[in-house]
Amino acid sequence: EVTIKANLIFANGSTQTAEFKGTFEKATSEAYAYADTLKKDNGEYTVDVADKGYTLNAKFAG
């Protein structure tokens, strides 16, 4: 089991951190699915991958 950390950075400057656990593939998929649920209210996002894929920095356009 691994933990994927998602740093969510919103256009207004606020941030949120979420963690997803499971296999690498499952946890990564859940992190992206969570970011997708936030698109409606926060706009499209881009992701910078860090820490060999164990940290995802998602920046929302607003």
Rank of each mutant, 00 (worst) to 15 (best):
V49P: 06
T46W: 10
L38H: 13
D48A: 10
N42L: 09
D36I: 01
G22Y: 00
A35K: 00
A31M: 08
T37R: 11
A31K: 00
K39G: 06
K21Y: 14
A18K: 15
A18S: 08
E19S: 10
N57D: 06
Y34Q: 02
D51H: 02
D48Q: 13
F20Y: 06
Y54E: 06
A27Q: 01
G22K: 00
D51K: 01
V47E: 00
A58H: 06
A11T: 08
F24G: 01
A27W: 02
T46S: 11
K26M: 13
T28V: 13
F24P: 05
F60T: 01
D51C: 05
T37E: 12
V49L: 10
A33P: 02
K59G: 04
A33W: 07
L56T: 03
T28D: 03
G62Q: 08
K40D: 10
D36V: 02
K40E: 11
S14T: 14
E30T: 06
K39S: 11
A31R: 01
A61V: 13
I9Y: 12
T17F: 10
D36L: 01
S29W: 11
V49M: 09
E25H: 09
L38F: 15
G62F: 07
A6G: 03
S29R: 14
A58R: 00
I4C: 02
N7S: 05
L56V: 09
T28Q: 09
I9S: 08
A58T: 09
E25Q: 10
Y45P: 03
D51Q: 01
N7C: 13
T46M: 09
K26A: 13
K39N: 02
F60I: 03
I4A: 00
T17N: 07
K40N: 11
Y54I: 05
E25G: 07
G62A: 07
D48M: 11
I4N: 01
L56N: 04
G53D: 06
E1F: 14
A11C: 14
I4G: 00
Y54C: 10
A50W: 11
K40H: 11
V2L: 06
D41V: 12
S29T: 11
N42H: 15
L38P: 00
F60Q: 04
T28S: 08
I4D: 00
F60W: 05
A61F: 13
N57V: 11
T23K: 07
K39L: 06
G13I: 02
E30P: 02
T28I: 13
K26W: 11
K40T: 11
A33K: 11
L38D: 01
G62R: 06
A58L: 15
N42W: 15
K26D: 12
K59M: 12
G62S: 08
G43T: 01
Y45E: 01
T15K: 12
A18H: 14
T15C: 15
N7F: 11
D36T: 04
D51Y: 00
A18F: 15
V47F: 06
L8K: 00
I9E: 08
T23G: 06
Y45Q: 01
I4Y: 00
Y32E: 03
T23W: 05
F10S: 03
I9C: 12
T55G: 04
E30M: 13
F20R: 01
V47H: 03
T3W: 06
V47Y: 05
K5Y: 09
K26I: 11
S14Q: 14
